[in-house]
C-alpha cells in the first residue's frame, strides 16, 4: 500500500478529435478517482488548444489523452508544442487507445511519457501516474 500524498494528484482525461467513443476514457476517470486522484474529463471533441488551456487552468499534473481515430501523431505533436509554448513542461502527457506499436517510439521522442494500449491494466496506469508525480 502506497502512502497518499498530502494533496491529491490532479489528472485531466482528454478526448480530442470527432470520435465519440469514450467508454475507455470514462472507465479511466472512475479508476483514477478510486485511486484517490482528482480527475476531470474534458468531454468529446476537444482541440489540442482547448485541452492544453483546460490543463493549465485546472493546474493538473497529468493529461491522459484517449485517441482511437489514428490521428495520434498530429494531435500529440500539437499538444506537446502548445504545452512547451506555454512553459508548462511540468505537466506530463500520457496516451491511450488504438496506437500501433511502431508509432510509440516516435510519440515518446516528442515527450509523451507513456502509451497504454488496449488491455493495459487500470492498476498499472494508476501506479505509473503515482510514480511520475513523485519523481
Amino acid at each position: 500500500m502506497k502512502t497518499q500524498p498530502d494533496t491529491p494528484i490532479r489528472v485531466l482525461v482528454a478526448k480530442p478529435g470527432l470520435d465519440g467513443h469514450d467508454r475507455g476514457a470514462k472507465v479511466l476517470v472512475q479508476a483514477m478517482r478510486d485511486a484517490g486522484m482528482e480527475v476531470s474529463y474534458t468531454g468529446l471533441r476537444r482541440t489540442p488548444e482547448m485541452i492544453v488551456e483546460t490543463a493549465i487552468r485546472e493546474d493538473v499534473d497529468v493529461i491522459c489523452v484517449s485517441i482511437l481515430s489514428g490521428a495520434h501523431n498530429a494531435i500529440f505533436s500539437e499538444i506537446m508544442d502548445r504545452l512547451h509554448d506555454q512553459g508548462s513542461n511540468r505537466i506530463s502527457v500520457l496516451g491511450g487507445g488504438v496506437i500501433p506499436g511502431r508509432d510509440i517510439a516516435h510519440l515518446k521522442e516528442m515527450g509523451v511519457r507513456e502509451i497504454f494500449t488496449p488491455g493495459a491494466s487500470l492498476v498499472a496506469i494508476a501506479d505509473y501516474i503515482e510514480s511520475l508525480v513523485s519523481e
Binding site: 478529435g17 470527432l18 470520435d19 471533441r45 482541440t47 481515430s69 489514428g70 490521428a71 498530429a74 494531435i75
Partner: peptide, 21 residues
C-alpha cells in the same frame, strides 16, 4: 465519415483529421 455525421464540411478546420476516416 464523422464530419458529415456532425454537419461539418470537409474543409472545416474541425474536420481536418477525420475526413473520409
Amino acid at each position: 465519415d464523422l464530419p458529415t455525421q456532425l454537419g461539418f464540411d470537409s474543409d472545416d478546420p474541425r474536420a481536418k483529421d477525420d475526413v473520409g476516416v
